[in-house]
Design a binder for these strands. Structure first.
Lengths: 216, 216
DNA sequence: CTTTAAACCGACTAAGCGGTCGGTTACTTT
DNA sequence: AAAGTAACCGACCGCTTAGTCGGTTTAAAG
């Protein structure tokens, strides 16, 4: 086997198992040895491939988390049909995974954000980058919806994006432990209702002001 | 000074500082010594008053977290006026605190839920209890609103409660680090729009704010 | 087959952890 | 003043951690 291929394979194995354990037990609560035991590898192998535990985690974020985010929450809404429907289906599926996957303890990203916030600025930067990508993508999806007439022109794209992200992150936290399926169902029907209020109004409808000016 | 008073005072000091540090740095990432150093107290004092670190934390949850939850998210909406307005104001104020308090890293409860989930079932039970109290309180507030005519009768109280909790928990996570004030603002205007879609549809509806536009 | 370096091993270190315990201080009671 | 005890001290123990390093295996290259 090619040397560089072997290197890649080992690093990949370590990262996949690392993410799984960090996700399940938390970063600070997972030791390097825990990961190595799972893989029957040694400390030497680990520190041959990675500079430190922190460096290891950052590479996991860059290699695995970013891709996971894209495949679950970004690519599914990149089509050109009805944006709100696509977002609805995207959330529906992502939450369905959460219900059935016992390894799924809340939203990966928000878990880590909570864990590293105020503790590790360097890692936080990488995590916030992913959030910003998600946000930017939601915003442009909503603007696309406004452009092609599926969403009312007066809707505040940035506001909706923040609200959607909040709701999704929150329900993922709520779905751990207590009645995940019921909560998913309730969440989704409220989301649909929220989206309904964003459908285009009649031509001469008064601007219903997405908030500006009524603040406090 | 009375002995029992002194005991109470010391335990209180320990719990307040403990919560602050656990909140800021996480439970597993905060050592008992960290807390004691802050208070200039010794291991002996700690283990004289508490059985273990875990017992200590549970007492913090029961004594401090429950009260914090009540004073910030439950009592403010227990009045008998327009329920939606009360919830709006309650969230507004809770988020305003989050914006200005540098010690405020996300929603206390959701932080801890994320940290203990899958790791400490005993503590998780206590945390989930608080969530259930909050949920029950929101549900009855919404039902009250339906009863006194401020909320449409067809609204799903449980659904709205889950959605509100999700959104609040999520935005608190989002507000850490990146543009908390802007995100709070956007969140609140979307929340108002969401609430607007829940106002009574029938013609004998309660007056809904001033101005133009009586559609919807 | 020999050379060479990448890949991996695992004992070791220093630091930090939760928790223990015999001793000391400070206050109450008699 | 003496005795008793609640409150507190801090050295210590056993254990785990991230990270180091000299040595060994593996496999491609000459």
């Amino acid at each position: 086997m090619n040397k560089t291929l072997k290197r890649m394979a080992t690093m990949q194995r370590m990262q996949v198992t690392g993410l799984e354990l960090f996700y399940k037990k938390g970063y600070y609560n997972t030791s390097v040895d825990d990961i190595l035991k799972e893989l029957s590898l040694s400390k030497g192998a680990f520190y041959y491939h990675f500079d430190s535990k922190e460096d290891f985690f950052i590479q996991i974020v860059e290699n695995l988390l970013v891709r996971k985010m894209y495949s679950m929450l970004i690519e599914p809404i990149e089509g050109h049909e009805n944006t709100l429907d696509m977002i609805t289906n995207c959330f529906e599926e992502a939450l369905e995974t959460a219900v059935h996957n016992e390894f799924d303890f809340g939203f990966v990203l928000s878990n880590f954000i909570n864990e590293f916030n105020g503790k590790n600025e360097k890692i936080m930067k990488h995590l916030n980058d992913i959030l910003r990508i998600w946000e930017a993508n939601l915003v442009s999806a909503i603007q696309r919806g406004k452009f092609n007439g599926h969403i009312d022109r007066h809707v505040d794209s940035e506001g909706v994006a923040v609200y959607l992200m909040s709701a999704y992150i929150g329900v993922r936290t709520l779905m751990v432990e207590t009645a995940p399926s019921a909560r998913k169902y309730r969440f989704m029907s409220q989301l649909r209702q929220y989206f309904k209020s964003m459908e285009p109004k009649s031509e001469n409808a008064v601007n219903q002001s997405s908030g500006y000016g009524t603040y406090n």
